[in-house]
Design a protein around this nucleic acid. Structure first.
Lengths: 137, 137
DNA sequence: TTTTATATGCAACTTTGATGCGTTATAATG
DNA sequence: CATTATAACGCATCAAAGTTGCATATAAAA
């Protein structure tokens, strides 16, 4: 009998390894984005540091996770919604950085359209807010 | 007779040093944001790497520059407009990252207001676009 | 069960950034 | 103009984040 992390890997055509399942578990357990340093801390002993980096980028490429850079410049990862694919990430929602607990939340807020000066062609828009999250405020 | 970089330093209460004038020159010559690595390359030989870091943060603190993190996670700096101060940066405009030349432009586009879920208090909003700039498109 | 391709672990390296400390230079004062 | 206190600078050192090459281990297919 297969558990859900194995199903996700299979669905995205990724080999079913112990390390990948362990990483995926962490995202299933969490309701907010996880930073690379936080993941590294949690998974110390479970796998090599390099393996974690490689798993995170392969998950991003195959549309399991999307990456978010917080304002300190550290990489964070969050689960993609069902419509994400390798070709295109649908992460055009607002990313909220809490100034207190430093967690990052993907909020279901559409990014409004903007008018750019002539000659500028927009490929992607990203909107980030800082402040206090619902538990910290 | 004083040149303009010296005037800027004086206005912001910073000591008038050769190194600070050299850094400020670079921003006067450029019409887009400059990344830390780019600055380091241009000023190699002019000053120590650490000095550049310290100058950039002191310029940011005193409201001469504001910092922008690009999507690769590298720090970029751009001139502030006149209303910036140590206490508060008025950099609530759109930052445009060109996918081709990788330059960053501060565009005069106001960030539209958004409705957040209950409990989330916004302190700052930042809007970033990627795509092709006016010279690359 | 064997084979083959992929994933992992390890070592080494690069880049970005920070810190402590002795030395130099600015700018205020006599 | 000379003196001096303070702030800035340069150098050495260190840490964190991320990358690369290669040998070994392990899924999954034959």
């Amino acid at each position: 009998m297969e558990n859900s992390t194995e199903q996700v890997l299979k669905k995205h055509g990724l080999k079913n390894t112990r390390q990948r399942n362990v990483v995926l578990e962490e995202f299933f357990k969490s309701n907010n984005a996880l930073s690379q340093p936080e993941l590294e801390k949690r998974l110390k002993g479970e796998m090599d540091r390099v393996t974690l980096y490689r798993i995170l980028s392969s998950f991003e490429e195959s549309g399991i996770l999307h990456s978010i850079l917080d304002r300190q410049g550290t990489m964070n990862y969050a689960s993609c919604n069902a419509s994400c694919s390798a070709a295109h990430h649908h992460d055009e929602h607002l990313h909220f950085n809490c100034d207190n607990c430093h967690k990052i939340f993907c909020l279901d807020v559409k990014i409004p359209a903007v008018n750019l000066p002539a000659g500028f062609q927009v490929a992607q828009l990203s909107l980030t807010a800082t402040g206090l999250c619902d538990t910290c405020s």
